[in-house]
Design a binder for these strands. Structure first.
Lengths: 257, 257
DNA sequence: GTCTATAATTGGATAGAC
DNA sequence: GTCTATCCAATTATAGAC
């Protein structure tokens, strides 16, 4: 299967290109077989850029639903409104296309987390983070789903980035959370688990949208449901981890207490 | 896995229609000649049952990682230690095998939720539920992943069951949660969102095990990490939704307010 | 029930004209 | 850069002997 880079029986030169794309460490410069990859040094004509991004976006839509193997390049080409061979002019092969999509994803996906810093009020920072992540789940559900797909499958094509970019970022932000806890602004919580919980709670609404739809009858596309979701998730998390002082007094509950 | 006798029996005609919503594939004509499915009425020799379940379990392992399209029947056969054609004697085609796996899954997946009833103490019920779901995430991560995969893809082969079994069960249990809220034993929370949150928080550790491993360096297989996870998730959820009476230290809040 | 072919088709990738 | 026409590998599924 095409799962492991050099573990199949493709022709030699084709495999060479695949291995390069998959391993990802090396500067993915491919010998002049195809002009698909010659970035950086020379500027690319605008038209090419546009077409590439059209293809990438079509690919995202399909890969995120059917996976790498469930999607044919024909389908991507059709959706991007280019011919199959033209697509293969821009991306040397299917796997390179897939990885290209994934790379863009990782950036978007991590962006909201970069904002965390110890100076912020944890309640505001976390509430804002939840909202931002839910906005992404609402506006870019495909991205979330593809990321999830890739994780489920063991991230064979993203493992390097995972170990580097992602885990170092999380390590830094966990330190921020730990600082919030130390300074008494947050209840004791294992930072990693809080991060996992935030991801899980917010991405779920994109990844399991079908299930949410089946049960709640609505998805994040519905404005009211979106706000309802933001509110519920925020309260679930915050009222669990914030020190009691930061919990706004609820008059009715004070009366009953 | 659970060999429920009446679990997954579809009549021969179901085999014939294998047109799926999956990426616009056209139906492959199937001549309904294989004896793969003749159940219920006649008892099946034990050996057949055993072999079927061996195949199903092999299929789960592969489908859950690589998806329906990412897995070949050859691979399943190899993993189950049977020949490909022998496998196709037991399951008329690849899709029937896949659906058979999914059906068993849904049952396991929903089981813990059935326990909820209004008479229980919500705190105990929910804490117990979290632990049970995390046990499943630990012991049957493949099942969780395959379920997730199917959801991401829009559950094309499970949609009926989703709309029936799952959503009616959730509707009933949501009523239980609502009752807990009404009786003041739980903070105000939208039942659906609580259910989604519980699922998301617990299944995340199975579905994103690779990410958890990359960041935390451990998975639920590690006993200490498992208990740490149970504890953190329980606290996150419970201290968020339980009535303030169960939350210690309200005194300072009154002072600042 | 199990096996050895093999039919039948999909789909990734290339060649070469323009 | 783009297209048409292929090539060829991978796989599903079937036929039919034992």
């Amino acid at each position: 299967m095409a799962r492991s880079p050099a573990a199949n029986k493709a022709p030699a030169d084709a495999r060479r290109r695949k291995a390069t794309a998959v391993a990802g460490r090396k500067p993915a410069s491919v010998a002049g077989t195809s002009p698909a990859r010659r970035s950086g040094a020379t500027r690319r004509p605008r038209q090419s850029e546009d077409k590439r991004s059209v293809i990438l976006s079509a690919a995202l839509g399909l890969f995120s639903r059917y996976g790498l193997h469930g999607t044919s390049v024909d389908q991507v080409a059709a959706r991007a409104d280019v011919s199959k061979s033209n697509l293969l002019y821009y991306f040397a092969n299917k796997e390179e296309l897939y990885v290209s999509v994934l790379r863009e994803l990782l950036h978007v996906w991590l962006e909201p987390l970069r904002g965390f810093s110890a100076e912020q009020d944890p309640r505001e920072a976390i509430a804002g983070y939840i909202r931002r992540k839910l906005v992404i789940s609402r506006d870019q559900p495909d991205a979330s789903r593809l990321f999830c797909l890739e994780m489920i499958q063991g991230a064979p094509l993203l493992r390097d980035e995972l170990d580097r970019e992602l885990s170092t970022l999380v390590a830094r932000k966990s330190e921020v959370i730990a600082e919030w806890v130390r300074s008494g602004r947050l209840r004791p919580v294992a930072p990693h688990h809080l991060v996992f919980g935030l991801w899980a709670l917010t991405q779920h609404y994109a990844d399991f949208a079908v299930q949410v739809q089946a049960i709640a009858g609505r998805t994040l596309q519905d404005a009211a449901f979106f706000e309802e979701t933001v509110d519920n998730v925020q309260r679930l998390v915050l009222d669990g981890i914030c020190v009691p002082a930061t919990v706004p007094a609820r008059a009715d509950q004070d009366r009953t207490a």
